[in-house]
Write a protein that binds this DNA or RNA. Structure first.
Lengths: 146, 146
DNA sequence: CATTAATGTAATATGTTTTATTACAAATAA
DNA sequence: TTATTTGTAATAAAACATATTACATTAATG
């Protein structure tokens, strides 16, 4: 699947939950082909959303798909090779601390430098989250399920 | 200002940026009364938004206000006594990793436990962010400005 | 080779959240 | 008394997220 992404505005707030749910199901059934309809039934969301997220997971090289009868999706790599920071990055569209205001007043001595200072702070906090997620893997997450 | 909050649905994505901007301006002018209009002019957002955020900052006990001519807002406590985790908590409405899906399928062995597992993970990441923000203060943030 | 079932994706609709705006009562300085 | 400011409700507009419909394409299988 090839995509040229010009600009994606939407930050889907349930995307991390959705994607880790999808990956958990796939990791629990290695070698099997799960359909978007079946996966959607577990999450109880629309199957088109599931297919879209699976498109991103294919872009990451984690998943492949098969069309037609008996088709579906399956994991290409073991869960221990997918860490949660990488999963988060596939769905993350805004900084952890949110968005900056677009036009702080350049004539105000504070306003003119605000976004530069926030840039540094926001980047640092994002890194903190990545660090915390990096040492966790899909495998360790999946192991928690009975 | 007393409020009974039944349920607040809105998570304003620029709220952290807005609130830290407001607090920075107040901290840079100790003892002065800044109007919501003047503050809004620095951020270049609507003054009503500024007054709403200042309402929350008053609830925290950090700020007080004065109505009427020559009125405005001023800081009640020094910037070193306000840490960024506390600021984040005043505006935070969702977990860092986002929202959970509402109704994972209880008949699915994965679906039925998903939100419990996500709950733990999401709480842990939130704590990580609080920890990173806790050792920074408004004072240290403000000092960065020329 | 017709049928069935699945992905991939566009287009559209609906719902939710965020931000801005309008309006005005209440307060207060001068 | 006038001018100015907060506090807040109500509404509007914009942005974002999710769901739905539709259908071309692909592939297994009887």
């Amino acid at each position: 699947m090839k995509k040229i992404i010009i600009f994606v505005a939407n930050m889907n707030n349930t995307r991390f939950a959705t994607v880790i749910h999808i990956l958990t199901l796939l990791a629990k059934s290695p070698g099997e082909w799960l359909s978007s309809d079946w996966i959607a039934g577990s999450i109880q969301i629309n199957p088109v959303i599931v297919r879209k997220e699976l498109g991103e997971l294919q872009d990451q090289g984690w998943v492949t798909s098969r069309k037609g009868k008996e088709g579906g999706y399956t994991l290409l790599i073991p869960g221990k090779d997918i860490n949660l920071a990488a999963i988060y990055k596939t769905v993350k569209k805004t900084d952890v601390l949110g968005k900056k205001n677009l036009n702080p007043n350049p004539k105000c001595p504070i306003g003119k430098d605000m976004n530069k200072e926030l840039e540094d702070l926001f980047a640092e906090i994002d890194e903190t989250v990545f660090d915390a997620l990096r040492h966790r893997t899909l495998e360790s997450f999946v192991k928690q399920f009975g």
